[in-house]
Write a protein that binds this DNA or RNA. Structure first.
Lengths: 106, 106
DNA sequence: TTAATATTATCACTATAGAGATAATTTGTC
DNA sequence: GACAAATTATCTCTATAGTGATAATATTAA
């Protein structure tokens, strides 16, 4: 995975698209936007609105939060954390506190 | 904190702005964008580009990832997780696996 | 090779993002 | 109350986001 922190929007779109092994054309169709637009985004020739980047994220099968997260590793952890029940969540908080004795977590 | 999942962009901007106890005017100055623009965003009358939402997030003192995260609780956990050393990270992974015996984490 | 099909590139057009100026309104302080 | 300073509302204008049509290029099959 490993997508860097300082990549551009276009680079990130392309990265996630190639993850899915689909063409610009296909992504455009899945997203419900024009092909020329997806192309311009990837090339950095257009600055997408949040609204349209959301469409593209939908086409990519990810959320905006996923899109802007620093790396996929963190995302997997986040996803795992979101599956937790409230009780398990408390256990996790306690666990993290045990790793950071001084800091207060949560 | 507790900002909901399905709020609009404008509602989220306003939420974070009021968290900071600053005016629309001040946020615009901090963000380096016009006051009328921040106003329109909050009212949902304009759909900001990612680029300009990023400016506003800077003015709010948060990241785009923070902006799109479902709630602050998750963010605190994420922040705590990011402080971990690689070894501690492995411990966390093992911990999460112990909570989800069937799923594969990481 | 040629034909058929999918993908990418280019370009002109319309809608709207974003700025800037200023009027209206609010929030003080005297 | 009146006056000053800040905040918000409104409006016009320019730059650019996003589309659609089509040309160019690549891919596959026969």
């Amino acid at each position: 995975m490993e997508i860097g922190f300082f990549t551009t929007i276009g680079q990130r779109v392309k990265f996630f698209r190639e993850q899915k092994h689909i063409t610009v054309n296909k992504l455009a169709t899945l997203s419900g936007v024009s092909q020329s637009y997806v192309r311009d985004i990837e090339l950095g020739k257009k600055q997408p609105t949040v609204e349209f980047l959301e469409y593209i994220c939908f086409g990519l099968g990810i959320t905006l939060q996923d899109f802007f997260s620093d790396n996929e590793k963190d995302d997997d952890l986040t996803k795992a954390i979101k599956k937790l029940t409230p009780q398990q969540r408390k256990m996790l908080t306690a666990f993290l506190e045990s790793l950071h004795p001084t800091d207060e977590v949560q």
